[in-house]
Design a protein around this nucleic acid. Structure first.
Lengths: 216, 216
DNA sequence: TTGTGTTTTTACCAAATGGTAAAACTTTTC
DNA sequence: GAAAAGTTTTACCATTTGGTAAAAACACAA
Protein backbone atom coordinates (compact mmCIF):
# COMPACT_ATOMS: atom_id res chain seq x y z
CA UNK A 1 0.00 0.00 0.00
CA UNK A 2 2.68 2.45 0.89
CA UNK A 3 4.52 1.32 -2.15
CA UNK A 4 3.75 4.16 -4.40
CA UNK A 5 4.23 4.13 -8.07
CA UNK A 6 6.89 6.61 -8.77
CA UNK A 7 5.39 8.43 -11.65
CA UNK A 8 8.16 7.25 -13.86
CA UNK A 9 5.94 5.57 -16.37
CA UNK A 10 2.62 7.22 -16.84
CA UNK A 11 0.29 4.50 -17.89
CA UNK A 12 -2.87 5.48 -19.51
CA UNK A 13 -5.48 4.56 -16.92
CA UNK A 14 -7.82 2.97 -19.39
CA UNK A 15 -5.31 1.63 -21.77
CA UNK A 16 -6.70 -1.65 -22.85
CA UNK A 17 -4.49 -4.45 -23.90
CA UNK A 18 -5.25 -3.82 -27.52
CA UNK A 19 -4.36 -0.19 -27.26
CA UNK A 20 -1.11 -0.91 -25.51
CA UNK A 21 -0.24 -3.50 -28.10
CA UNK A 22 -0.85 -0.94 -30.79
CA UNK A 23 1.44 1.51 -29.06
CA UNK A 24 4.07 -1.18 -28.78
CA UNK A 25 3.80 -2.08 -32.44
CA UNK A 26 4.06 1.54 -33.41
CA UNK A 27 7.15 2.09 -31.30
CA UNK A 28 8.66 -1.13 -32.56
CA UNK A 29 8.05 -0.08 -36.12
CA UNK A 30 9.89 3.14 -35.55
CA UNK A 31 12.79 1.31 -33.94
CA UNK A 32 13.07 -1.44 -36.54
CA UNK A 33 12.81 1.17 -39.26
CA UNK A 34 15.84 2.90 -37.90
CA UNK A 35 18.20 0.05 -37.14
CA UNK A 36 16.67 -3.11 -38.54
CA UNK A 37 15.90 -6.32 -36.75
CA UNK A 38 19.23 -7.27 -35.25
CA UNK A 39 20.16 -3.69 -34.57
CA UNK A 40 17.15 -3.05 -32.39
CA UNK A 41 17.06 -3.96 -28.72
CA UNK A 42 13.86 -4.99 -26.98
CA UNK A 43 14.73 -2.58 -24.21
CA UNK A 44 14.87 0.30 -26.66
CA UNK A 45 11.35 -0.44 -27.75
CA UNK A 46 10.15 -0.83 -24.18
CA UNK A 47 11.65 2.51 -23.25
CA UNK A 48 9.95 4.18 -26.18
CA UNK A 49 6.62 2.84 -25.00
CA UNK A 50 7.34 3.66 -21.38
CA UNK A 51 7.18 0.15 -19.98
CA UNK A 52 9.80 -2.26 -18.73
CA UNK A 53 11.45 -4.74 -21.01
CA UNK A 54 9.94 -7.62 -19.08
CA UNK A 55 6.55 -6.09 -19.42
CA UNK A 56 7.07 -5.80 -23.13
CA UNK A 57 7.98 -9.46 -23.22
CA UNK A 58 4.74 -10.18 -21.45
CA UNK A 59 2.88 -8.81 -24.46
CA UNK A 60 5.22 -10.13 -27.13
CA UNK A 61 7.00 -13.22 -25.85
CA UNK A 62 9.97 -12.67 -28.11
CA UNK A 63 11.51 -10.29 -30.56
CA UNK A 64 10.68 -12.21 -33.67
CA UNK A 65 7.00 -12.33 -32.84
CA UNK A 66 6.98 -8.58 -32.44
CA UNK A 67 8.93 -8.11 -35.64
CA UNK A 68 6.51 -10.25 -37.60
CA UNK A 69 3.59 -8.31 -36.26
CA UNK A 70 5.19 -5.07 -37.35
CA UNK A 71 5.83 -6.43 -40.82
CA UNK A 72 2.35 -7.78 -41.13
CA UNK A 73 0.82 -4.48 -40.16
CA UNK A 74 2.64 -2.71 -42.96
CA UNK A 75 1.94 -5.40 -45.49
CA UNK A 76 -1.74 -5.34 -44.71
CA UNK A 77 -1.76 -1.62 -45.32
CA UNK A 78 0.10 -2.07 -48.55
CA UNK A 79 -2.05 -4.84 -49.94
CA UNK A 80 -5.06 -2.67 -49.37
CA UNK A 81 -3.79 0.12 -51.55
CA UNK A 82 -1.33 -1.57 -53.81
CA UNK A 83 -3.92 -3.29 -55.91
CA UNK A 84 -3.36 -2.38 -59.50
CA UNK A 85 -6.09 -4.13 -61.34
CA UNK A 86 -9.34 -2.84 -59.95
CA UNK A 87 -11.79 -1.06 -62.15
CA UNK A 88 -12.03 -2.75 -65.55
CA UNK A 89 -13.46 0.41 -67.07
CA UNK A 90 -10.70 2.74 -66.00
CA UNK A 91 -8.18 3.79 -68.59
CA UNK A 92 -4.56 2.75 -68.45
CA UNK A 93 -3.42 6.27 -67.66
CA UNK A 94 -5.98 6.56 -64.88
CA UNK A 95 -4.93 3.29 -63.33
CA UNK A 96 -1.23 4.10 -63.52
CA UNK A 97 -1.74 7.60 -62.17
CA UNK A 98 -3.81 6.28 -59.31
CA UNK A 99 -1.25 3.61 -58.59
CA UNK A 100 1.68 6.01 -58.42
CA UNK A 101 -0.20 8.41 -56.18
CA UNK A 102 -1.30 5.57 -53.93
CA UNK A 103 2.22 4.33 -53.45
CA UNK A 104 3.48 7.82 -52.77
CA UNK A 105 0.77 8.36 -50.20
CA UNK A 106 1.87 5.21 -48.44
CA UNK A 107 5.43 6.47 -48.36
CA UNK A 108 4.19 9.70 -46.88
CA UNK A 109 1.83 8.22 -44.35
CA UNK A 110 3.86 5.26 -43.27
CA UNK A 111 7.53 5.86 -43.97
CA UNK A 112 8.63 3.70 -41.08
CA UNK A 113 6.79 0.70 -42.42
CA UNK A 114 8.49 1.23 -45.72
CA UNK A 115 11.87 1.34 -44.03
CA UNK A 116 11.27 -1.84 -42.08
CA UNK A 117 10.34 -3.47 -45.36
CA UNK A 118 13.51 -2.10 -46.94
CA UNK A 119 15.68 -3.49 -44.16
CA UNK A 120 14.01 -6.84 -44.52
CA UNK A 121 14.55 -6.92 -48.28
CA UNK A 122 18.16 -5.84 -48.14
CA UNK A 123 18.62 -8.62 -45.64
CA UNK A 124 17.44 -11.08 -48.23
CA UNK A 125 13.87 -11.20 -46.93
CA UNK A 126 14.47 -14.03 -44.44
CA UNK A 127 11.04 -13.53 -42.92
CA UNK A 128 9.11 -12.20 -45.89
CA UNK A 129 10.27 -14.52 -48.62
CA UNK A 130 7.32 -16.84 -48.30
CA UNK A 131 4.90 -13.97 -48.28
CA UNK A 132 6.45 -12.43 -51.36
CA UNK A 133 6.09 -15.69 -53.22
CA UNK A 134 2.58 -16.44 -52.10
CA UNK A 135 1.06 -12.96 -52.23
CA UNK A 136 3.15 -10.45 -54.09
CA UNK A 137 4.19 -12.61 -57.02
CA UNK A 138 0.68 -13.59 -58.18
CA UNK A 139 -0.45 -9.98 -57.95
CA UNK A 140 2.63 -8.90 -59.82
CA UNK A 141 2.06 -11.37 -62.61
CA UNK A 142 -1.53 -10.32 -62.96
CA UNK A 143 -0.54 -6.68 -63.19
CA UNK A 144 2.24 -7.45 -65.65
CA UNK A 145 -0.27 -9.26 -67.84
CA UNK A 146 -2.57 -6.26 -67.80
CA UNK A 147 0.22 -3.93 -68.86
CA UNK A 148 1.04 -6.32 -71.66
CA UNK A 149 -2.57 -6.16 -72.79
CA UNK A 150 -2.39 -2.41 -72.91
CA UNK A 151 0.65 -2.70 -75.11
CA UNK A 152 -1.08 -5.18 -77.39
CA UNK A 153 -4.02 -2.84 -77.62
CA UNK A 154 -1.69 -0.06 -78.71
CA UNK A 155 -2.36 2.03 -75.65
CA UNK A 156 1.18 1.68 -74.36
CA UNK A 157 4.44 1.52 -76.22
CA UNK A 158 6.33 -1.73 -76.06
CA UNK A 159 8.09 -1.46 -72.73
CA UNK A 160 9.01 -4.10 -70.17
CA UNK A 161 6.13 -4.28 -67.68
CA UNK A 162 8.36 -5.89 -65.07
CA UNK A 163 10.91 -3.12 -65.10
CA UNK A 164 8.16 -0.56 -65.19
CA UNK A 165 6.91 -1.84 -61.86
CA UNK A 166 10.38 -2.03 -60.38
CA UNK A 167 10.94 1.58 -61.32
CA UNK A 168 7.63 2.81 -59.95
CA UNK A 169 8.18 0.97 -56.70
CA UNK A 170 11.70 2.23 -56.33
CA UNK A 171 10.82 5.80 -57.20
CA UNK A 172 7.92 5.95 -54.78
CA UNK A 173 9.64 4.20 -51.89
CA UNK A 174 12.73 6.31 -52.13
CA UNK A 175 10.81 9.21 -50.60
CA UNK A 176 10.36 7.11 -47.49
CA UNK A 177 13.55 5.08 -47.34
CA UNK A 178 15.99 7.76 -48.40
CA UNK A 179 14.10 10.72 -47.02
CA UNK A 180 17.25 11.85 -45.26
CA UNK A 181 19.11 12.27 -48.51
CA UNK A 182 16.21 13.96 -50.26
CA UNK A 183 15.59 16.36 -47.41
CA UNK A 184 19.21 17.25 -47.42
CA UNK A 185 19.38 17.89 -51.14
CA UNK A 186 16.15 19.87 -51.16
CA UNK A 187 17.36 21.86 -48.19
CA UNK A 188 14.35 20.98 -46.05
CA UNK A 189 14.15 19.81 -42.51
CA UNK A 190 11.36 17.41 -43.24
CA UNK A 191 9.53 16.39 -46.38
CA UNK A 192 6.13 18.03 -46.60
CA UNK A 193 3.01 16.96 -48.36
CA UNK A 194 3.94 19.45 -51.04
CA UNK A 195 7.12 17.54 -51.80
CA UNK A 196 5.15 14.37 -52.26
CA UNK A 197 2.75 16.23 -54.49
CA UNK A 198 5.68 17.45 -56.59
CA UNK A 199 7.01 13.93 -56.74
CA UNK A 200 3.62 12.63 -57.84
CA UNK A 201 3.35 15.26 -60.54
CA UNK A 202 6.81 14.57 -61.84
CA UNK A 203 6.53 10.81 -61.74
CA UNK A 204 3.13 10.48 -63.35
CA UNK A 205 4.14 12.99 -65.97
CA UNK A 206 7.39 11.31 -66.85
CA UNK A 207 6.07 7.77 -66.69
CA UNK A 208 3.01 8.50 -68.78
CA UNK A 209 4.96 10.46 -71.36
CA UNK A 210 7.51 7.69 -71.23
CA UNK A 211 5.26 4.74 -71.93
CA UNK A 212 1.95 5.88 -73.39
CA UNK A 213 1.76 5.49 -77.13
CA UNK A 214 1.39 8.64 -79.21
CA UNK A 215 1.95 10.83 -76.21
CA UNK A 216 2.40 14.49 -77.20
CA UNK B 1 68.72 1.51 -46.93
CA UNK B 2 67.65 4.12 -44.51
CA UNK B 3 65.64 2.42 -41.87
CA UNK B 4 65.58 4.88 -39.08
CA UNK B 5 65.31 3.78 -35.56
CA UNK B 6 63.22 6.59 -34.36
CA UNK B 7 61.07 5.07 -31.70
CA UNK B 8 57.98 6.28 -33.47
CA UNK B 9 55.78 3.58 -34.88
CA UNK B 10 57.08 3.09 -38.32
CA UNK B 11 55.23 0.61 -40.38
CA UNK B 12 55.96 0.03 -43.96
CA UNK B 13 53.13 -0.71 -46.31
CA UNK B 14 53.76 -4.39 -46.53
CA UNK B 15 52.08 -5.86 -49.57
CA UNK B 16 50.49 -8.67 -47.62
CA UNK B 17 49.15 -6.25 -45.09
CA UNK B 18 47.49 -4.22 -47.80
CA UNK B 19 46.05 -7.36 -49.30
CA UNK B 20 44.71 -8.58 -45.99
CA UNK B 21 43.18 -5.20 -45.29
CA UNK B 22 41.47 -5.36 -48.66
CA UNK B 23 40.10 -8.79 -47.85
CA UNK B 24 38.86 -7.50 -44.52
CA UNK B 25 37.17 -4.52 -46.09
CA UNK B 26 35.55 -6.72 -48.66
CA UNK B 27 34.23 -9.13 -46.04
CA UNK B 28 33.09 -6.26 -43.87
CA UNK B 29 31.26 -4.73 -46.79
CA UNK B 30 29.37 -7.94 -47.36
CA UNK B 31 28.50 -8.20 -43.69
CA UNK B 32 27.44 -4.58 -43.24
CA UNK B 33 25.43 -4.84 -46.44
CA UNK B 34 23.45 -7.67 -44.99
CA UNK B 35 22.74 -6.53 -41.46
CA UNK B 36 23.84 -2.94 -41.18
CA UNK B 37 26.27 -1.44 -38.72
CA UNK B 38 24.78 -2.40 -35.39
CA UNK B 39 23.60 -5.74 -36.66
CA UNK B 40 27.06 -6.85 -37.66
CA UNK B 41 29.48 -8.40 -35.18
CA UNK B 42 33.21 -7.96 -35.51
CA UNK B 43 33.60 -11.67 -34.98
CA UNK B 44 31.36 -12.39 -37.96
CA UNK B 45 33.66 -10.35 -40.15
CA UNK B 46 36.75 -11.98 -38.71
CA UNK B 47 35.34 -15.42 -39.36
CA UNK B 48 34.54 -14.51 -42.94
CA UNK B 49 38.13 -13.45 -43.46
CA UNK B 50 39.47 -16.46 -41.61
CA UNK B 51 41.27 -14.65 -38.81
CA UNK B 52 40.55 -14.17 -35.14
CA UNK B 53 38.53 -11.27 -33.87
CA UNK B 54 41.52 -9.94 -31.95
CA UNK B 55 43.58 -10.11 -35.07
CA UNK B 56 40.93 -8.17 -36.93
CA UNK B 57 41.04 -5.56 -34.21
CA UNK B 58 44.77 -5.34 -34.74
CA UNK B 59 44.13 -4.12 -38.27
CA UNK B 60 41.07 -2.02 -37.52
CA UNK B 61 41.14 -0.87 -33.92
CA UNK B 62 37.39 -0.58 -33.71
CA UNK B 63 34.21 -1.23 -35.57
CA UNK B 64 33.49 2.33 -36.54
CA UNK B 65 36.88 2.76 -38.17
CA UNK B 66 36.24 -0.31 -40.26
CA UNK B 67 32.74 0.85 -41.14
CA UNK B 68 33.99 4.23 -42.27
CA UNK B 69 36.60 2.60 -44.44
CA UNK B 70 33.94 0.46 -46.08
CA UNK B 71 31.75 3.47 -46.72
CA UNK B 72 34.60 5.48 -48.09
CA UNK B 73 35.58 2.74 -50.49
CA UNK B 74 32.09 2.70 -52.00
CA UNK B 75 31.81 6.45 -52.12
CA UNK B 76 35.12 6.78 -53.89
CA UNK B 77 33.90 4.34 -56.49
CA UNK B 78 30.67 6.25 -56.89
CA UNK B 79 32.19 9.67 -57.19
CA UNK B 80 34.36 8.38 -59.96
CA UNK B 81 31.44 7.29 -62.08
CA UNK B 82 28.60 9.41 -60.84
CA UNK B 83 29.77 12.57 -62.46
CA UNK B 84 27.02 13.93 -64.62
CA UNK B 85 28.47 17.02 -66.14
CA UNK B 86 31.52 15.97 -68.06
CA UNK B 87 31.69 16.52 -71.75
CA UNK B 88 30.28 19.92 -72.70
CA UNK B 89 29.78 18.79 -76.26
CA UNK B 90 27.73 15.69 -75.48
CA UNK B 91 24.00 15.88 -76.06
CA UNK B 92 21.51 15.75 -73.23
CA UNK B 93 20.27 12.33 -74.27
CA UNK B 94 23.82 11.01 -74.47
CA UNK B 95 24.66 12.30 -71.04
CA UNK B 96 21.51 10.95 -69.47
CA UNK B 97 21.87 7.59 -71.17
CA UNK B 98 25.45 7.34 -70.04
CA UNK B 99 24.50 8.34 -66.52
CA UNK B 100 21.79 5.72 -66.18
CA UNK B 101 24.00 2.99 -67.55
CA UNK B 102 26.81 4.03 -65.26
CA UNK B 103 24.66 3.86 -62.18
CA UNK B 104 23.26 0.51 -63.20
CA UNK B 105 26.75 -0.83 -63.74
CA UNK B 106 27.65 0.23 -60.23
CA UNK B 107 24.64 -1.59 -58.87
CA UNK B 108 25.71 -4.66 -60.78
CA UNK B 109 29.37 -4.53 -59.89
CA UNK B 110 29.11 -3.41 -56.31
CA UNK B 111 25.71 -4.30 -54.91
CA UNK B 112 27.04 -4.68 -51.40
CA UNK B 113 28.39 -1.18 -51.36
CA UNK B 114 25.02 0.06 -52.46
CA UNK B 115 23.36 -1.84 -49.65
CA UNK B 116 25.70 -0.47 -47.01
CA UNK B 117 24.89 2.96 -48.31
CA UNK B 118 21.18 2.17 -48.15
CA UNK B 119 21.44 1.04 -44.55
CA UNK B 120 23.30 4.17 -43.68
CA UNK B 121 20.71 6.39 -45.33
CA UNK B 122 17.72 4.65 -43.81
CA UNK B 123 19.46 5.13 -40.51
CA UNK B 124 19.45 8.86 -41.09
CA UNK B 125 23.02 8.97 -42.41
CA UNK B 126 24.66 9.46 -39.01
CA UNK B 127 28.10 8.96 -40.48
CA UNK B 128 27.55 10.19 -44.02
CA UNK B 129 25.58 13.35 -43.41
CA UNK B 130 28.59 15.61 -43.55
CA UNK B 131 29.84 13.99 -46.70
CA UNK B 132 26.48 14.34 -48.38
CA UNK B 133 26.40 18.02 -47.61
CA UNK B 134 29.97 18.72 -48.61
CA UNK B 135 30.27 16.52 -51.68
CA UNK B 136 26.97 15.26 -52.99
CA UNK B 137 24.96 18.44 -52.64
CA UNK B 138 27.22 20.70 -54.71
CA UNK B 139 27.41 18.10 -57.44
CA UNK B 140 23.66 17.69 -57.30
CA UNK B 141 23.05 21.40 -57.65
CA UNK B 142 25.39 21.63 -60.56
CA UNK B 143 23.64 18.80 -62.33
CA UNK B 144 20.22 20.22 -61.56
CA UNK B 145 21.30 23.51 -63.10
CA UNK B 146 22.42 21.75 -66.23
CA UNK B 147 19.11 19.97 -66.60
CA UNK B 148 17.37 23.29 -66.18
CA UNK B 149 19.48 24.70 -68.98
CA UNK B 150 18.41 21.87 -71.22
CA UNK B 151 14.84 22.72 -70.45
CA UNK B 152 15.42 26.41 -71.19
CA UNK B 153 17.02 25.46 -74.46
CA UNK B 154 13.93 23.48 -75.36
CA UNK B 155 15.75 20.16 -75.37
CA UNK B 156 13.84 18.82 -72.41
CA UNK B 157 10.25 19.33 -71.40
CA UNK B 158 9.63 21.27 -68.23
CA UNK B 159 10.15 18.62 -65.58
CA UNK B 160 11.54 18.85 -62.07
CA UNK B 161 15.27 18.15 -62.31
CA UNK B 162 15.44 17.27 -58.62
CA UNK B 163 12.81 14.59 -58.82
CA UNK B 164 14.30 13.33 -62.04
CA UNK B 165 17.51 12.57 -60.21
CA UNK B 166 15.73 11.02 -57.26
CA UNK B 167 13.91 8.72 -59.63
CA UNK B 168 16.98 7.71 -61.57
CA UNK B 169 18.91 7.04 -58.39
CA UNK B 170 16.09 5.02 -56.90
CA UNK B 171 15.43 3.04 -60.05
CA UNK B 172 19.06 2.13 -60.54
CA UNK B 173 19.83 1.31 -56.93
CA UNK B 174 16.81 -0.87 -56.53
CA UNK B 175 18.51 -3.56 -58.59
CA UNK B 176 21.16 -3.77 -55.92
CA UNK B 177 19.25 -3.05 -52.74
CA UNK B 178 16.11 -5.01 -53.50
CA UNK B 179 17.70 -7.65 -55.67
CA UNK B 180 16.01 -10.31 -53.56
CA UNK B 181 12.57 -9.07 -54.48
CA UNK B 182 13.41 -8.63 -58.14
CA UNK B 183 15.00 -12.05 -58.43
CA UNK B 184 11.98 -13.55 -56.85
CA UNK B 185 9.52 -11.82 -59.13
CA UNK B 186 11.56 -12.54 -62.23
CA UNK B 187 11.89 -16.14 -61.14
CA UNK B 188 15.68 -16.09 -61.20
CA UNK B 189 18.18 -17.33 -58.72
CA UNK B 190 20.47 -14.40 -59.29
CA UNK B 191 20.31 -11.29 -61.42
CA UNK B 192 22.44 -11.63 -64.53
CA UNK B 193 24.10 -9.02 -66.67
CA UNK B 194 21.22 -9.49 -69.08
CA UNK B 195 18.75 -8.31 -66.45
CA UNK B 196 20.75 -5.15 -65.92
CA UNK B 197 20.89 -4.66 -69.65
CA UNK B 198 17.10 -4.99 -69.81
CA UNK B 199 16.79 -2.53 -66.97
CA UNK B 200 19.08 -0.10 -68.76
CA UNK B 201 17.11 -0.39 -71.97
CA UNK B 202 13.81 0.12 -70.22
CA UNK B 203 14.96 2.98 -68.05
CA UNK B 204 16.75 4.99 -70.70
CA UNK B 205 13.84 4.44 -73.04
CA UNK B 206 11.19 5.52 -70.57
CA UNK B 207 13.13 8.41 -69.12
CA UNK B 208 14.12 9.84 -72.48
CA UNK B 209 10.64 9.47 -73.92
CA UNK B 210 9.38 10.90 -70.68
CA UNK B 211 11.39 14.08 -70.59
CA UNK B 212 12.84 14.87 -74.00
CA UNK B 213 10.87 17.49 -75.87
CA UNK B 214 9.24 16.45 -79.14
CA UNK B 215 10.08 12.83 -78.51
CA UNK B 216 8.35 10.52 -81.00
C1' DT C 1 -13.67 -10.15 1.91
C1' DT C 2 -11.77 -13.35 -0.79
C1' DG C 3 -10.71 -15.85 -4.83
C1' DT C 4 -9.25 -15.60 -9.59
C1' DG C 5 -7.29 -14.07 -13.58
C1' DT C 6 -4.41 -10.33 -15.43
C1' DT C 7 -0.61 -7.20 -15.47
C1' DT C 8 3.78 -5.34 -13.66
C1' DT C 9 7.95 -5.53 -11.17
C1' DT C 10 12.00 -7.70 -9.25
C1' DA C 11 15.75 -10.78 -9.55
C1' DC C 12 18.54 -13.29 -12.39
C1' DC C 13 21.14 -15.52 -16.20
C1' DA C 14 23.66 -17.36 -20.17
C1' DA C 15 25.32 -15.95 -24.39
C1' DA C 16 27.17 -12.46 -27.32
C1' DT C 17 29.67 -8.33 -28.05
C1' DG C 18 33.27 -4.68 -28.45
C1' DG C 19 37.39 -4.05 -26.60
C1' DT C 20 42.03 -4.29 -23.54
C1' DA C 21 46.54 -6.31 -22.13
C1' DA C 22 50.10 -8.82 -22.87
C1' DA C 23 52.44 -12.94 -24.04
C1' DA C 24 54.21 -15.59 -27.98
C1' DC C 25 55.46 -16.10 -32.43
C1' DT C 26 57.36 -14.48 -37.10
C1' DT C 27 59.72 -11.56 -40.18
C1' DT C 28 62.91 -7.92 -41.18
C1' DT C 29 67.05 -5.32 -40.51
C1' DC C 30 71.71 -4.55 -39.28
C1' DG D 1 72.36 -14.05 -35.14
C1' DA D 2 70.23 -10.79 -32.15
C1' DA D 3 67.49 -6.74 -31.73
C1' DA D 4 63.57 -4.57 -33.54
C1' DA D 5 59.39 -4.41 -35.79
C1' DG D 6 55.35 -6.56 -37.08
C1' DT D 7 51.74 -10.11 -36.44
C1' DT D 8 48.94 -13.58 -34.10
C1' DT D 9 47.24 -15.92 -30.17
C1' DT D 10 45.73 -16.35 -25.46
C1' DA D 11 43.41 -14.68 -21.56
C1' DC D 12 40.21 -11.61 -19.85
C1' DC D 13 36.51 -8.24 -19.03
C1' DA D 14 32.57 -5.00 -18.73
C1' DT D 15 28.34 -4.30 -20.96
C1' DT D 16 24.49 -5.46 -23.53
C1' DT D 17 21.02 -8.51 -24.94
C1' DG D 18 17.15 -11.75 -25.29
C1' DG D 19 14.94 -14.39 -22.25
C1' DT D 20 13.25 -17.12 -17.75
C1' DA D 21 11.07 -17.51 -13.11
C1' DA D 22 8.50 -15.99 -9.81
C1' DA D 23 6.89 -12.75 -6.61
C1' DA D 24 4.02 -8.75 -6.12
C1' DA D 25 0.32 -5.61 -7.40
C1' DC D 26 -3.95 -4.92 -9.47
C1' DA D 27 -8.87 -5.54 -11.20
C1' DC D 28 -13.00 -7.35 -10.36
C1' DA D 29 -16.74 -10.58 -9.66
C1' DA D 30 -19.22 -13.55 -6.18
Amino acid sequence: MSTRKTGASQRKPNASRVQLEARIISAAEKAFALTGYSGTAMETIAEAVGISKQNLIYYFPNKETLYRRVLRKTLDMWLEKMAFTEDPDASATDIITHYIRGKLELSYENPDGSRVFAHELINGAPVLKDYLISHLKPQFEKDVALVRQWTSAGVLRDVSPEHLFFTIWAATQTYADFATQIQLLLGKKKLQKKDFEDAALFLTDMVLHGIVANSP
